[in-house]
Design a protein around this nucleic acid. Structure first.
Lengths: 228, 228
DNA sequence: ATAATAAATGTAAAAAACACATTTATTATA
DNA sequence: TATAATAAATGTGTTTTTTACATTTATTAT
């Protein structure tokens, strides 16, 4: 613990609140720390910002290191900067939330790194102010989901309408009516029906759709809004 | 310019995008720099964060210094952290936007400090990335105004409905229908009609209202929304 | 052939948003 | 003291959006 102290200068860190969706529940990626400081405790995935990179570059680097993914949907949440938030450094952290498409490759990769997915309504105690960050991020994505189609970031490229609904139910934490939900989603004209069906969760099978980014951008330009 | 260089460590700054409303137009507070760096140029109001204060404490300090006001509505916008954004320091800036009630006292005070109000659709060239910050803040308050009653932060404690409408027209940059606007605002039940009238802009005079914070909080708790 | 499963579909009622023109209170002045 | 001028205040019908709600359909397994 020798090096863990420097209170005369600012350190800048990025912490990432990484959300995934396993077709049923929203999940948070949590890291089990193997070295000091906070060895054995749980934390968000983070890193110091290097002097030669921007804060958003740092967040991209962290996401890449941990998930192997580039081009992840990542947004700045806010800074955390209480003088005594970290007992070792005078460190301000710029929290970012990220939404990723979980698949088997990523599942393995994050396990190897010592990270684990936790159900959002069963989040363990995390170090420092990381629980506070997580709660703020959850609140934020609930707000954002009302007017940006972030749901698509969490689903596979091809998804069914019932799965999309389950996801929004997880974000809003309430049940939605399947008829009204489908009607509303289709009215935006930003998803394209495919020929294929997904039969993993019913005998009848549900048609797969994909997100139409071009059309969404047009919708946004002409006055947007995406209230579900 | 001797001291103006230290690129080996992080400096943390706060820049404030301060908005006011003069009963007609939305205004931005801009500072005319009298000393180096950037002597003679225009900038937002900012300061380095001290090692012993949080970022939000710094923003409160800045607002107090410049306007004499405490308890100003201030929110974090985002960080600006490009490696080369400031040629002198390796400095990340946490931009904050603030909404203040302009009155004669404040007008005088900011003038003494060498600051000036600019119409939001006539903003001059500012140093560094301050124009970028300003544009982002304008976009943000337009978004926020849709679901939080921030308009009241910019108006005097007592205001008329036509003035409130003018303010929202300035924020949204479009005309609103006076009948529908009044109906909508009153439907929220968060403003209280007073006996007094303001006769400065018509012979008939318009009734003054005040914002009912208690009722607004209740509204928010029970599912909120404030779309005008 | 039948049972089981989740997907897909339509409609009527209620609420909200929108478009739109006239009257009212007051002061200044002819 | 009548009139002109000014901005404030008000109401209604139409359209759009939201909400609530139950049955049929495609498919597989038994």
């Amino acid at each position: 613990m020798d090096l863990y102290s420097d209170k005369d200068k600012f350190y800048v860190a990025v912490d990432c609140i990484i959300f995934g969706f396993d077709n049923e529940k929203l999940k948070l990626l949590v890291f089990n720390r193997k070295i000091d400081p906070f060895k054995g405790s749980l934390s968000l995935i983070g890193s110091f910002v290097k002097i030669g990179e921007s804060v958003s570059d740092a967040s991209i680097r962290i996401l890449k290191e941990f998930t192997g993914l580039e081009n992840v949907y990542t947004k700045e949440l806010r800074t955390y900067s209480s003088v005594d938030r970290d007992p070792g450094y005078r460190c301000i952290s710029v929290a970012h939330y990220a939404l990723i498409r979980v698949n088997e490759t990523i599942k393995k990769l994050v396990e190897e790194k010592g990270a684990k997915w936790y159900d959002i309504d069963n989040i363990p105690e995390l170090i420092l102010d990381h629980n506070e960050m997580t709660n703020a991020a959850l609140k934020r994505i609930e707000e954002i989901a009302r007017y940006k189609p972030i749901g698509f970031e969490l689903l596979p490229k091809k998804f069914t309408i019932p799965k999309l609904q389950t996801l929004y139910e997880a974000i809003y934490r309430r049940k939605l009516d399947p008829r009204n939900f489908r009607k509303k989603i289709l009215s935006f004209n930003i998803i394209i029906k495919l020929e294929e069906k997904d039969r993993t969760s019913s005998k009848k099978g549900a048609f797969l759709y994909k997100f139409d980014n071009t059309k969404y951008k047009k919708l946004q330009e002409s006055g947007y809004d995406f209230e579900i």
